[in-house]
Structure formats: C-alpha cells, structure tokens
C-alpha cells in the first residue's frame, strides 16, 4: 500500500509525464524521426488505409512524415501528443489526395469509368481518426488504469462498483480515472475538441 501510494504521487508529478520522444522530436534530434516513425508509422498508414488503397496509403504516409519533420518546430506538446499531431497532418493529406485525384479525373476523362474510392467527408475522417487514436491511447495506459477505465467505459460501472469488483480502494480508482482521462486528452489532443 505504501509503495502504491508512492508511485501514485510520482505519477501525479507532471514533470515525469513528459514523453521524451515528443521533446526530442520538437528539438530536431535526428533519431527522433526514426523513433516517431517506428511508433506511429503504422497508425498513420492504417488511418490512410481506411480511405485509400495501399499504394496511396504508402505515398501519403511518406508525405506525412516528411511534412512533419520539416514542420517540427510547429509541434507543441502542450496541445497534444505526437500521435494526434501526425494524425491531423494525415487527415489533411488524405483530403489533398482526393482533391488531386478528382482534379486528375476531370483532366483525364478516360478514367471516368474507373471505380474510385469514395471520398470520405472531413467529419467521417475525423471520427475514424479519433477512434483509432483512442485505441492507441487506451493501449498505452498502465495496466491497472487501463482495466479501471475499461470497466468505466465499456461496462458502465461506477467508481464504487469498480472498487468493489477489483478490491482497489475507491480513492485509487478515482485517481486512476482522472489521470487516465488526462492521458487520453493528450493522446487525442490537436484533434479532439
């Protein structure tokens, strides 16, 4: 119990919550791009794959990371994580992609009969992106917090019910949920709300 309380206190210290990758990326550390790609490449690519074929998804993923690196000075970790920032760039590139495809369709009328993927609305793209980011953000929570928040989200359990079911003290359940929501806000920042 003492150990738990100690670790709780440490987790409450916001200075310990700074993601080293986020600060390295903003600082232009040359390994940070590779780390960012390793961590978020499949997220970006998978978001693309929801709207475009795999070849276009590969092209867009490439453009996203190149644009992100060139504009890294604009990344502000206080507004959200690198994941949502990259996802926002992805959304814009996907929209650009459909605009350029439709321009090309007009120029080359031969392709009129070629089935093209339907252009998603901006809102639909945003909703998909938010849900995919939430999947990531939930996965990244510490295990206990993830279990607690999952019970609140997916089983509609109250704090008291979660405490009763898990044996975790009520105060700890509350702080787990509060801290988890902080992380989810960061994990969906830039795009959410």
């Amino acid at each position: 119990m003492t150990l738990l309380a100690t670790s709780d206190l440490r987790e409450d210290d916001p200075s310990l919550d700074v993601d080293p990758l986020e600060s390295a990326f903003a600082a232009g550390d040359d390994r940070a791009l590779k780390d960012a790609y390793d961590q978020y490449g499949s997220l970006v690519y998978s978001i693309c794959r929801r709207s475009v074929d795999d070849a276009a998804a590969a092209d867009i993923t490439q453009e996203v990371f190149i644009a992100a690196w060139r504009n890294r000075a604009r990344y502000d970790a206080t507004r959200g994580g690198l994941g949502p920032w990259l996802s926002g760039i992805t959304r814009n590139k996907v929209i650009d992609h459909f605009r350029s495809v439709s321009r090309e369709d007009r120029r080359v009328d031969k392709v009129k009969n070629t089935p093209q993927p339907a252009e998603p609305t901006q809102q639909a793209l945003e909703e998909v992106t938010l849900r995919m980011l939430l999947v990531e953000a939930l996965d990244e929570l510490p295990e206990r917090a993830r279990n607690v928040i999952s019970m609140a989200f997916f089983e509609d359990l109250t704090h008291v019910e979660i405490a009763a079911r898990t044996g975790i003290p009520l105060g700890t359940v509350k702080s787990d949920i509060r801290r988890s929501l902080d992380r989810l806000r960061h994990g969906l920042g830039y795009i959410h709300g």
């Binding site: 499949s42 690519y45 998804a57 590969a58 690196w69 909703e127 849900r131 939930l138 989200f153």
Partner: peptide, 22 residues
C-alpha cells in the same frame, strides 16, 4: 470508446520503402 469498431483496432505496417523514401 463504445463507438470503437473492430476496424479501428486493425493496424497495418507500411511497406519498407516508405521509410527509405522518407
């Protein structure tokens, strides 16, 4: 959270040439 679909959980790895090109 309750609107998350199975598709939202699917992750594909980009082909290796993507990183090479970046």
């Amino acid at each position: 959270a309750q609107s998350i679909t199975d598709d939202d959980r699917v992750r594909h790895s980009p082909p290796p040439m993507v990183w090479d090109n970046i």
